[in-house]
């Protein structure tokens, strides 16, 4: 996925699952939309569906510091790259 595709998918998830319309890329999700730890767990499930594979506990823990849509996109990009690298190594 390109960065634009990731951004579009993440925004779709926020609209569909969290009823957040057009969030700013750098909005603090907790402060602006009351996005909490329960939402973070649900977001990770949606990201797993988007990527088509399960995240490890370590990968999930990396996501707990995320505060903005921009950071979520960085995270998805990073996870995708790690998986691609691992697949390449094999």
């Amino acid at each position: 996925m390109t960065r634009q595709e990731i951004e579009r998918e993440i925004k779709n998830i926020f609209q569909r699952e969290f009823e957040v319309e057009n969030p700013g890329m750098d909005d603090n999700l907790r402060e602006e939309y009351g996005f909490d730890s329960i939402d973070a767990i649900e977001l990770l499930l949606e990201i797993e569906k988007l990527l088509g594979f399960e995240l490890t506990q370590e990968e999930k823990k990396l996501a707990m510091e995320i505060r903005t849509i921009s950071q979520i996109c960085d995270y998805v990009e990073k996870i995708t790259q790690i998986k691609a690298t691992l697949a390449g190594d094999k």
């Binding site: 969290f18 009823e19 009351g34 329960i38 939402d39 649900e42």
Partner: peptide, 8 residues
């Protein structure tokens, strides 16, 4: 009810 409340 807002989703923030509905989820639990």
């Amino acid at each position: 009810f807002k989703r923030h409340n509905r989820k639990t």
